[in-house]
Design a protein around this nucleic acid. Structure first.
Length: 771
DNA sequence: AGTGATCAGATTTTT
DNA sequence: TCTGATCACT
């Protein structure tokens, strides 16, 4: 362990070794934040602290998983498996399941995801006859969520004059009622939404001091990652748990707080020293990620914010190229400029696609980028699209699991009672809902006791049979919960519910892909079962129950590892947080887009946008390129755009500012960034969904990015090359031309290189020598 | 139950 | 402009 600590710089090591008492680590971008956290845990364990006494909280599953793996690697033992390491939501869901009875919940409560929550609200709005224009679902859910995040109960909400005035002023006086009904509905379904997991943990710790004491004793050492993103509910949980031992270490960067819009409270990190007077503060200011130009540019941006903890990020890395700025006249041209720049860099310097990332403020901006990349046959991957667990077919099957485990889970029931179609239609269901409301009981209670309620329902015998068949089916699944393992039962449900049959009838590519998704879900369950069986866990057969415990909390960020990963990454800046790429393009640097128009009215909102820009810049390791367009389609209207104020805030020494060099014509300077001639002919385009799949097959340039120009390899004169010729490539060596495609400047050659295999190269860029 | 028309809504979203 | 949700209609 001692030699492991040698791998840390001074401040990092101090932060790791200072294990007792409150510690705050302010970790600048790229300064080794995760390193400190993992080494700190490893250090604690190697000092003899029991893994069961350590709690490490993160915001994403990915971060938790990564941390766990790295600690195990450091220690060379699986001791770290016993550390409670996970997201706020998953850790406290786990505790809530253990303590559920104290709050009047069954321990197998369902966790409602956002879609479930929205659906509950829609149902309530309908029942209350409220105009959904006056009460947009997102708005209502937003209010409820904000209330819960700030630990405002239904009673508090309705008694708080300020809140009531706000809602009335907004013409939405019924929000408090909706909040109340929503909570009732969730409880009746034995369900908690995401916010409930934190809210109810607070209730638990507030009302059951013995429980709080138990966990205070257990978690002697607490670590919190991304502390700047905690909301009040999370803050208070941590504070209460740490109250006895005060061995709390929070790590974060106020400059990277970009989730205030969702309730994250930047004050939590700014006020840490007020909460813990004897807190030690360590500032990690050395950046190991980026060039001097990038670090300095980021510094020059963030200095414009008023609310911040002072720090000075520096780096020993090379100076690197200046930041580049592209200007184009339309958003589509912006896409072309970025795509061709990626293409050129990739070809000229033999880079991987995965060395590049395109970051944008809004998802809508991805379209132009995608189109351009597709034209150039550059494989790309969009992050943050529809997550695996949000796909309809996956949710359908999971809804069967949910209803099997928790018969009161109404959202699951609505989803599947007539899927696959079994003749229980809307009218039937509406009748049941009415009767359930009248009798103040659950849907499940009605359908499992049809005889008792049929006076009010007056269903005919056909309907009764259909419904009771459904009930029998779900009950039969439930009886298997104990004697079949998760995979066996999941498989059984997929087959016998008719879901698989229904999907198999659909022979379209989309239908096939849906089947594959179901298969993938089943496989992931099998993996889990197998893994548990391999480990020395006494619980030999993991039940479906166990599998479902945190399924709602899982996102698929660590999935599709098997696929070809050499792709350009496209994502929002929010999604890019925590990631790094050698070459980064931040697009849409325009006023009203970035910073967003909606942020312009308040200083705090504008500062959050600026932090977002800071996050964007600091993702880049080697080279950063910004771009903006003079016009852009927004909601169908062509709007004229001005360059973002943020570009002007960048220290001019760090950026190539073409305007300042060429004053004569404000148009000329864009030229050099645009494709030289109309190079890339649009080929017949397959529909997008199919095209995306094909992209994975596009061959890519292999690793190794350190290439220096070698003059003996020049771009070959395109007319000279012919099928069958022997050629030599700077990197791939000797090969034979198999195929030529396209014409003039965008002729592509398929070349079989000895020992390397077949590569498609664009002659314009490939440095080839004819032998 | 499925289809076509129509209409609203469209920052960011770790869970 | 584009997407999806909803609704009326068959």
């Amino acid at each position: 362990m001692e030699n492991i600590l040698d791998k840390l710089n001074d401040v990092q090591r101090q932060a790791v070794e200072c294990t007792d008492g409150p510690v705050m680590v302010i970790a600048g971008a790229g300064s080794g934040k995760t390193r400190v956290l993992t080494y700190r845990i490893a250090h604690l364990l190697s000092k003899g602290v029991d893994a069961f006494n350590v709690l490490a909280l993160t915001f994403t599953n990915k971060a938790a998983k990564e941390m766990k793996e790295r600690v195990i690697c450091l220690l060379g033992s699986s001791e770290a498996m016993n550390v409670w390491m996970g997201t706020f939501h998953s850790i406290f869901a786990r505790i809530l399941r253990i303590e559920a009875d104290k709050l009047g919940y069954p321990s197998n409560f369902t966790i409602y995801d956002t879609d479930d929550s929205k659906s509950v609200i829609k149902t309530i709005l309908k029942e209350q006859n409220l105009d959904d224009k006056m009460y947009p679902v997102n708005f209502v859910l937003g209010r409820i969520s904000a209330a819960k995040s700030n630990l405002i109960s239904v009673a508090d909400y309705n008694n708080n004059a300020e809140i009531q005035t706000q809602d009335r002023a907004a013409g939405k006086p019924q929000i408090g009622t909706l909040y109340s009904l929503y909570n009732q509905r969730c409880r009746k379904s034995s369900a908690m939404d995401f916010d409930d997991l934190l809210y109810n943990t607070n209730v638990l710790f507030r009302d059951f001091t013995d429980v709080l004491y138990k966990y205070q004793q257990k978690f002697k050492y607490i670590l919190v990652d991304e502390y700047q993103d905690t909301n009040y509910a999370q803050y208070l949980i941590v504070k209460k748990l740490a109250a006895n031992n005060e061995n709390i270490c929070v790590v974060g960067d106020d400059a990277q707080s970009i989730y205030a819009f969702r309730g994250a409270n930047i004050e939590n990190i700014l006020n840490f020293k007020k909460d813990y007077a004897d807190a030690k503060v360590f500032k990690l200011e050395q950046n190991y990620r980026s060039t001097k130009n990038i670090v300095n540019a980021a510094n020059s941006i963030i200095i414009n914010n008023k609310d911040q903890i002072f720090k000075e990020i520096w780096t020993e890395n090379e100076e690197g190229p200046k930041i580049q700025l592209f200007k184009t006249s339309t958003d589509n041209e912006e896409g072309m400029s970025v795509a061709s720049s990626i293409f050129e860099n990739k070809m000229n310097f033999q880079l991987n696609n995965s060395d590049f990332a395109i970051l944008y403020r809004t998802n809508a901006q991805s379209r132009a980028m995608e189109e351009a990349l597709r034209k150039l046959n550059v494989p790309y991957r969009i992050f943050g699209g529809l997550s695996f667990y949000k796909r309809k077919e996956v949710k359908d099957l999971i809804a069967y699991f949910r209803l099997t485990i928790n018969h009161n889970d109404e959202e699951a029931l609505y989803r599947i009672i007539n899927y696959p179609a079994r003749g229980i239609g809307k009218t039937t269901l509406e009748k049941i809902m009415v009767v359930a409301n009248e009798n103040d009981t659950s849907i499940w209670n009605i359908i499992s006791n049809l005889q008792q309620f049929n006076a009010a329902l007056s269903f005919n015998s056909g309907t009764i049979t259909k419904i009771s068949d459904f009930v029998t089916m779900i009950r039969s699944y439930a009886t298997y919960l104990n004697d079949k393992n998760a995979f066996e039962l999941a498989n059984h449900i997929a087959a016998s519910s008719g879901i698989l049959r229904d999907l198999r009838e659909d022979k379209t590519p989309e239908g096939i892909s849906r089947q594959e998704n179901i298969e993938e879900l089943l496989n992931s369950i099998k993996d889990l079962v197998d893994k548990e069986n391999d480990s020395d866990n006494e619980e030999q057969n993991i039940s479906l129950n166990r599998f479902m415990e945190d399924i709602a909390l899982i996102t698929d960020s660590d999935k599709d590892d098997k696929e070809n990963n050499d792709k350009v990454s496209l994502m929002t800046i929010h999604a890019a947080k925590g990631l790094e790429f050698p070459y980064v393009f931040v697009v849409g640097m325009e006023e009203n887009l970035f910073p967003s128009q909606l942020s312009l009215s308040s200083r705090t909102d504008l500062e959050e946008e600026r932090r977002l820009f800071y996050v964007a810049i600091t993702r880049a390791m080697k080279k950063l390129t910004l771009s903006y367009s003079e016009s852009r389609y927004r909601w169908g209207n062509l709007t004229l755009c001005e360059i973002s104020r943020f570009v002007d805030e960048i220290n001019e020494k760090c950026i190539d500012f073409p305007q300042k060099q060429i004053n004569t014509s404000s148009f000329n300077y864009t030229k050099k960034f645009e494709p030289k001639e109309k190079p890339f002919v649009v080929q017949q385009e397959p529909p997008l969904s199919i095209a995306k799949k094909k992209l994975t097959k596009v061959s890519s340039i292999s690793n190794n990015s350190n290439s220096s120009a070698d003059d003996s390899f020049n771009a070959v004169n395109i007319g000279e090359i012919a099928i069958g010729m022997d050629v030599e490539h700077q990197r791939f060596g000797k090969g034979k031309v198999l195929q030529l495609e396209g014409n003039d400047s965008n002729t592509k050659a398929l070349i079989s290189f000895n020992g390397v295999g077949e590569k498609q190269l664009l002659l314009k860029f490939a440095k080839l020598k004819i032998l």
